[in-house]
Design a protein around this nucleic acid. Structure first.
Lengths: 341, 341
DNA sequence: AGTGGCTTCCAAAGCGCTTTAAAATATGTA
DNA sequence: TACATATTTTAAAGCGCTTTGGAAGCCACT
């Protein structure tokens, strides 16, 4: 059943039927009712491909999912997607997910954009000086970035959390507790959030005349294994750090294993603050020693970004172009006064 | 740049250019080269919507993502998706993800199918007597089910692991170790895998004249909280179970917290075997007491299902309709002889 | 020269929808 | 009643691609 058949059945033109369905005003209310009833009876559904071809709109937002045989899947990604989905389902939008090699994200994004399959783009895993920004701007397709790109003019639509402030505040707390030897377990060095969190920590240390040593910094994929390895390395240093800032509760998971294996007590011998993306699987309050965290819900960010994206496509009022969310610093048991040594 | 412009530029007809691009034989090799070169230079990309309208093929596979404001995102889903993606990227396929309320999956699936946005469907979270099967069969669109539907004729294409055998074998091991009081921490009772795993356990117990008590069975969402709660309940029973079968390492995470809090030792006072979906985040060997598990990679299943789905769409040879993977029983430290009481 | 068979190319007809421009009909006003 | 103005409907032109059904050109063979 297509539009032509339906209109013949009704003795109307395709135009009128199409208009009746799409809520145009220039159609008699009685006719509209008649059309709607016929649609119900026949189970007619407009062909999306044709609709898309005619309008250029697809009712979908596109995103690139980094993946590769060796590439370990990222809980953060899933959680964020859940947020996007929660909002999308309210507006009958869907996603087009383009899987792509992590080294090929620019090209994948371009392919996705020109595929004509999506109305808007969502972009994550931002890097410093991210090359995708220039491409996105040249595209004339709405997009929202999750995060920012350090070193680029912040003139693009984004939603980010204040990573610098988060780790600055976290470091301040630890400084107040008397800690002087800090370590940082961070995400991959090229990623924007990693750069900013590091800067936040360095700024706080700088105010006290302290520095962040290179051998007290690790930049890795945020898996628990890497957390374990990094922490083991820190613990073997002559001047062992007593205060750890950690970019994810996933990293913290491994880090804490290392702490336990070394026979140390979290919150006593060693203090740790992790950033908490509010992953359902990894609640900081459920750790054997509940974790002090900087918190911001990844899922909430997903919801908000979907709102902005869909709103823009539907031209539903203006949205703020740039949003910077504050994180919350939540003190639990993994932080304590610096040990006397 | 569209086909018309490109063909004018080349002084060829649209037909010839289209054929040159799609590898049809009736075009001179020299002309084809010329076309290909022009494509490179101009950066021409065929409009997908038009292609789809003309061919009816979309180059994408559809799936429903259960989501709702309260609905906690599922690590298993993300991991599986990564597997699908890994394969899809090899064939330039993408996904169309339709977010849907978990109670609305049938309707969502139908919407997705008739949307014309997808060539094939992937279906998961199978239930006993799943109503989606009948709908899928009536659809004349290729699909593959992950899991099976207990109580339905197994005449649909699926990939499943042998859940019954997995828990049967796991229970046998614990029986051999002398355990007699068993408990089961399972997924939601209506889901197929939960039904089968329970059956596997009951079968093994039955052979020894044992039964699975109702108060030693929990069916919950597979979160660590629920694991904690269930285990706490088990531990308060007068006849405390000493052998636990657990449907996910996520549940085990919470369960083990309860065990620790009760001052019990895993592998001594209480033995536990969990099913391991090989989540990167939750490696059983990294638990403080490494976990004995039944193992089967969710991600590998994703890859395989994508293969079958894409292969079918591309008509690339026949695939087995039904596949049942064996799980591996891997013994680590969380299982030990039944305590003498 | 005429015929048949290849190879290579093309014009044009869709695919199913939206939308423009115009026609038909209804309504209001002098 | 006649005319201008609203309201409602329509025919037809796309959107950008694939594919059908020829046609043109070329060759070899009678």
């Amino acid at each position: 059943m297509n539009l032509k058949q339906l209109s013949e059945l009704l003795g109307l033109s395709q135009t009128t039927v199409s208009r009746a369905l799409n809520g145009y005003p220039e159609v008699n209310e009685a006719t509209r009712e008649r059309v709607l009833r016929a649609v119900k009876e026949t189970g007619y559904r407009p062909n999306k491909a044709a609709q898309r071809l005619a309008t250029g709109k697809a009712g979908s937002i596109g995103l690139v999912m980094p993946t590769a045989p060796g590439h370990q899947s990222d809980v953060h990604f899933g959680e964020f997607l859940a947020g996007l989905g929660e909002e999308a389902v309210r507006h009958d939008f869907h996603f087009v997910i383009m899987p792509a090699d992590p080294d090929d994200e620019v090209a994948a994004l371009r392919r996705l954009a020109i595929s004509g399959n999506v109305d808007a783009l969502f972009v994550a895993y931002m890097r410093g000086h991210d090359p995708r920004l220039a491409m996105l701007k040249s595209l004339s397709m709405p997009f929202v970035v999750h995060g920012r790109s350090f070193g680029s003019e912040p003139d693009y639509p984004y939603l980010d959390i204040d990573n610098e402030a988060a780790f600055y505040e976290a470091a301040r707390l630890l400084l107040q507790l008397g800690h002087t030897r800090f370590a940082l377990m961070n995400g991959p060095a090229h990623l924007d959030f990693a750069i900013r969190r590091r800067n936040g920590l360095i700024a706080a240390l700088g105010e006290r005349g302290l520095e962040l040593a290179d051998d007290c910094t690790s930049h890795t994929v945020m898996s628990d294994e890497e957390g374990l390895i990094a922490m083991e390395r820190f613990l073997q240093l002559a001047e062992r750090p007593t205060a750890i800032l950690c970019s994810s509760t996933v990293l913290a998971l491994g880090a804490i294993r290392a702490v336990n294996q070394a026979g140390l007590k979290l919150g006593e011998n060693i203090s740790l603050i992790a950033h908490d993306d509010v992953l359902p699987l990894l609640k900081p309050e459920n750790f054997s020693v509940p974790l002090t965290t900087t918190r911001s819900s990844l899922r909430a960010a997903g919801v908000r970004i979907a709102q902005r994206l869909i709103g823009t496509v539907k031209q539903a009022g203006p949205f703020p172009e740039q949003e910077l969310w504050k994180t919350e610093l939540i003190v639990r048991a993994s932080t304590g006064p610096a040990p006397q040594s």
